[in-house]
Each structure stands twice: as structure tokens, then as C-alpha cells.
Amino acid sequence: MPKAPVRSKPVAVAEVILPRVSPLADVAVQGRFGADRGAPGVTFSVRHPLSIATVIARAGKGKATAQALAEYEPRWAGPDQYFVVAQGRGEGALYRELKSALDGIASVSDQSHGRVIIRIEGPKVRNVLAKGTPVDLHADEFPAGKSALTQMAHVGVHMTRVGEDAFELSVFRGFSESFWEWITEQAEEFGYQVR
């Protein structure tokens, strides 16, 4: 009986033949919805495909982890815990890169497929989000770059302010369709665009 793990032959990323399919592929239909007077209050877009990894510092390595992650614009996700988000990377590439960069100081888990990130931006973005989260989104309290873990419509949401009027909401993949239906409905009164 083999003692070491048996691995199949390594296959280069470029050889992956299957495309990734977003769980919102058929749900997030582009167009203008809700109240149709004037400019849309908010615009939604699904950021897919993305590479997402959870990074959690090992015991006593909080500072080292933060330093090692500085260049990745990590998103705070709990004590000594972060999400790293990247675009245009091959399957598993970000995970492997972080795992080797953080070897011994932090645990890395690939969440690229496990979470769906919805971007919402526009002048009414705070009004829409206030229908879900108890977090105070005033710019003095929640400036760009800040992240929070919260709940909206009974779904756990990791929320990051990415601009003055722009937020990204990260939810578990399985809830993404339900969450999409709920949050777009909250934007109907302002009119919304899906890009």
C-alpha cells in the first residue's frame, strides 16, 4: 500500500479544457430593470471568473501574514484572516502562489469557486445596501478599502467598499442566485442596470 499520496501526472494550467460556468450565468441577465426614469440608481455586475483565496495567519504570525499580503490588496475577513481576490489567473494559480509565498506563516484555501462576487455601484448604492446590512455605510465610518462581514436577507455577506459609490459583495456560491434575486429587487425603486 503506498504511503505517499498518489498523484496523477501534473497537468499544466493551459491544458484545462473546461470553461468555468458562473452560477449566475443564466440569472444575471444584462439590461435595464425596475423604475425606468432617469439614470439607473445602481449598476450590478458579476465578477466572474475570479481567483479568490482565504488566508488565515498561523499562531503568532498575524503581522507576518499582513506584511506578506500587502501587495495583494487583501480584504479583511476576520481576525488575522483575509480574502485575496485576483482576476485573469489560471485555475488554482493564485492559490498555489499564495501557498508557497505564505508557507509556514499562514493557511491558504482556494475559494475561487466557492464564492460569488457581485459588484454594485451608483448613487443609490448605500440605499440599496441599507435594506440588508446593519453596518453604517457612511463614508466616514466605512471608507473605500474597508471590508465587513455581515448578513443580508439571512445570507452571510463579505462586503468591501471598492470606491466612493461602489461595493463588492461576496456570498457563498449556493446562495448566489437567491441573493441576486433579493438584492436586485431592493434596487427596483431606483432603477438598475445589469452589466
Binding site: P79, T150, Q151, G156
Partner: peptide, 13 residues
């Protein structure tokens, strides 16, 4: 009174 609470809807601490 001191009580254990879990921030189950937030940072999970």
C-alpha cells in the same frame, strides 16, 4: 453577567 457570545453573523469569533 459575563456571557459567551459567538459573532455567528459576522467575524465568527
Amino acid at each position: 453577567f459575563d456571557e459567551f457570545v459567538h459573532h455567528s453573523g459576522g467575524c465568527r469569533a
